[in-house]
Design a protein around this nucleic acid. Sequence first.
DNA 1: TTGTATGCGTTATCAA
DNA 2: TTGATAACGCATACAA
Lengths: 337, 337
Amino acid sequence: MTTIHEVADAAGVSISTVSYALSGKRPVSENTRRRIEDAARSLGYEPDAGARMLAGRRTHIFALTEPLRADTHAPTHMAFVLATAVAARRRGYDILLLTDEQTADGMNRVAASRLVDAILVLDVAPDDERAAIARTVRTPTVFIGIPDDPDGLTCVDLDFEAAGHLAVDRIADAGHRRATLLGQTEVSYRRSNFPRRLLRGVQDRSDERGVSLSWVTTGAVSTDPAAVRSATEAALARGDRAFIVHAVGDVHEVLLRTLDAHGLRVGEDVSVVSAAASFDTSALAVPVDTIPLIPQQSCEVAVELAERHLDDPGTPPQIHLIPPEYHSAGSIAPARE
Amino acid sequence: MTTIHEVADAAGVSISTVSYALSGKRPVSENTRRRIEDAARSLGYEPDAGARMLAGRRTHIFALTEPLRADTHAPTHMAFVLATAVAARRRGYDILLLTDEQTADGMNRVAASRLVDAILVLDVAPDDERAAIARTVRTPTVFIGIPDDPDGLTCVDLDFEAAGHLAVDRIADAGHRRATLLGQTEVSYRRSNFPRRLLRGVQDRSDERGVSLSWVTTGAVSTDPAAVRSATEAALARGDRAFIVHAVGDVHEVLLRTLDAHGLRVGEDVSVVSAAASFDTSALAVPVDTIPLIPQQSCEVAVELAERHLDDPGTPPQIHLIPPEYHSAGSIAPARE
DNA sequence: TTGTATGCGTTATCAA
DNA sequence: TTGATAACGCATACAA
């Protein structure tokens, strides 16, 4: 194992100069810094994690809590985990997994043992028990998602309400007086907070714009293609020619197939908007206007907020809402009377 | 922050006694041990992670490398991650995620910095670059899966060949002379090793038992229901009445629906065996004989092997094959001539 | 059965 | 711009 002493010897300087040269926390002459960096590289020096944690103020590790429930949508979840890991790594942090039932104990444990610099919370529930823990723990905690009572918490999330407004506006602008919201599974409206926020945004703006809105869920616990198909057909029978979809990719596919089976062309006979989609909608059979939910965005901001709290512990808690973007793909059709 | 000194004071002993009492590495009288445990609990003492890493020999962290590819089957992958985390935690280890594309650099980094006690490798490819790194690194490494050249590596996996034998035997015992293997996606036969091992087991034993075997993949990159249906119908047209399925849950469902649509009853007119299924086959519409691939099993063994290497660094590399089990559910039908 | 004392490899403070 | 050195909190070898 290479230590800082060996690097110091090789470069002909003291260990403190090595430390400062590598951390950049103190100006070091260009010349000696290069000698040090060369020595470190050729010796394969990597600071001892334990020593660094003990002496320094940082562990360079973030905890990521994720209470993998049975109804968790695996692909979406994985996208968030990956995005978090990448964003953290880019800033020099590793991710420690706090999974399963023990997330509550886990949070206390990693905080008390000073194993991590901050805690990132994924898959936030409306009445999330981790909210209370976050308030008692000294370790800075950032929620990716928003619980019902976010008081005193730092949270990041897409502005789902604004996304709902945006979707309805485009449809109303095209002249539609009726629309259907193909929502998530039933359980997600109980287990999560964001589907309700999008729903509220869609409902409120529909009221304002005089759009008659129908809302349907797309399965009990997991997506049910048959339910999606019959819901679509019912909507068509009602005369709805505008669909806002807030659901996984499969739902989009069933919707598009059903519309096609009825001879309706997206963007000409019928309007479709995908709201807060966390998957790649460009892979769908038909181009669909999308208000994307980009995990990379939320996770990047979360890591950023966490680090800001470390640099300046006085930073007040805040809710960071990411403004939605509208990506047109020609799937809005003018309403026909 | 509570330190070991405060616990020692509260219990009226020296810090070394506290350390030994809590680690159990030295006998401590029942009386004082209880006093110490009480003090530790009431003070909320948790050993400082950095200090423990520096002074002791262990970090109590395992790295888990997972090169999340686009074709990764998210639910299966999550099951393995979760199982690993649970098994590790049960033995007092946390899981550090090594996920970016640069898992190779990550392995070297956590090894050089002594951040982790061991490395667990998930989603092993035939020509996995991590094999070479594992051989050079000091940190004990355990593969959950087997690369093409496992020389000098410690690996754990289900005995896929034996699973293939088992499946064919049951079908041959029932008198079938023809069978179809519904396999994985095409890409997985290139990207992974285990589908080929199962295939070989099925082929070899089919030859031995005089079973005429057909093998089909079930999609290019991801599962294609249409391909599964047409493959099933082609098999039926050939006269095959026995199916071995090595694929995700969706494939099973399409198969069962197709059989049903042809008026064939599983267990009476046609035989179905699910081989190396990592999901819960009891949730299928029809009970199906299953040779399960239980992530908990592999991951438990992996963690066990990792810890054994820590306790006894001399432990030689080994490939640990988990013998398959056959769970009957009445889906084997006697062959009709 | 318990206590004392050393060292782990850094970071950061104080000096120069 | 650089160096010496005192923590950091614990595990463990050595003593008692």
